[in-house]
Design a protein around this nucleic acid. Structure first.
Length: 314
DNA sequence: CGTCCAGGTCTAC
DNA sequence: GGTAGACCTGGACGC
């Protein structure tokens, strides 16, 4: 456990926005894939963070004093450097470094999304690396959610570096590095992960990242600010197994909200919410065009408002 | 049992 | 540039 002071993070966005921890934890399904896990009732997020100078550590994030998140680190108390790294990691995962105030201003003018700023919604739980986001996204393509869970769990369980406290299973391990994924053989992907045709995609993607042919992490860093979304999309679409859906999904995960995630879940859900049987993609795009670079985030929040119960008006 | 298809992508026209 | 068909896997469903 942490030292007596405990570790806490102020739940405020970079622009002073309120942040709702529960809304953040339940921002999207990928947030609950290993090595992350969400306990909805306890409002707790567990994840395992890789550290630069020591073994990965299991971290638990939960509600602390009002306006704060509490961070617990499993195992012996981390040193000062590791503590800083863990705090930075959690800040990144919760996306606290992001300023959503410009988006909130737009949402406030839209009767159907005016609830967003007050709800502290809009922070999509993120993974420690862009590589992890892309791999997980590929695991969501063309299969059921149970298959996604099976594939990700197998990758983490068999290729992830364990924290000292790790027990058998997919939790308590950092997400595998590109190195580890590139070194695993085709048989591993076929027989253990049961990834089917995605196996060769994973091997090639991991090899490209390991060999420095692509720099995915730059796309998720603040130094990529001058790279336009179109360019980010082009780079993602060039990756094996990444098409329009996966590119839009990965972009949402790395804070590039211009693309709408249009897939077999979002399309019917949108149609149902607006009381139609089907809606053309172009119609959906038009509805959210006013949000410009935040169109994808607006669309996602429109779809997921009912994921969290809202407090009754006083 | 077979067919369909799930939070698609790729290749070949 | 738009559009079939194939593609791993494994639940859900119809027969």
């Amino acid at each position: 456990m942490t030292d007596g002071c405990g570790l806490e993070l102020s739940l405020v966005g970079a622009g002073g926005e309120a942040v709702d921890l529960r809304r953040t934890f339940l921002s999207h399904g990928v947030a609950s894939l290993p090595p992350q896990a969400i306990d909805e009732d306890a409002v707790t997020l567990e994840t395992t963070l890789r550290l630069s100078r020591s073994r990965p550590r299991v971290v638990l994030v939960s509600a602390g004093r009002p306006g704060f998140a509490r961070i617990e680190v499993r195992g012996r108390a981390p040193g000062a450097a590791a503590t800083d790294e863990i705090a930075d990691g959690v800040r990144r995962v919760l996306r606290l470094d992001e300023d959503l105030s410009a988006f909130y201003d737009l949402a406030a003018q839209d009767p159907e999304l005016a609830w967003v700023p007050g709800a502290g919604a809009g922070r999509m739980i993120r993974s420690p690396t862009v590589f992890e986001e892309v791999v997980k996204t590929i695991c969501t393509t063309n299969c059921t959610w149970s298959a996604t869970e099976r594939m990700v769990a197998a990758l983490v369980e068999h290729l992830g570096d364990p924290a000292p406290s790790a027990r058998p299973g997919p939790l308590g391990r950092a997400f595998p590095t590109a190195e580890a994924m590139a070194s695993a053989g085709e048989r591993f992907y076929k027989e253990v992960v049961r990834a089917g045709y995605r196996g060769p995609y994973f091997i090639e993607l991991a090899r490209m990242v390991r060999d420095g042919e692509v720099n995915l992490e730059i796309l998720g860093s603040s130094s990529a600010a001058e790279i336009p979304d179109d360019e980010v999309a082009t780079r993602l679409l060039a990756l094996p197994g990444v098409g329009p859906y996966a590119a839009a999904h990965a972009m949402m995960m790395i804070g590039r909200y211009s693309r709408l995630i249009l897939d077999s879940w979002t399309r019917p859900k949108y149609a149902r919410l607006v009381g139609r049987r089907t809606v053309k993609d172009s119609t959906i795009e038009r509805r959210f065009r006013r949000y410009k670079s935040y169109a994808g985030l607006a669309f996602w929040l429109f779809l997921t408002r009912d994921w969290v119960e809202e407090p009754l008006p006083a």
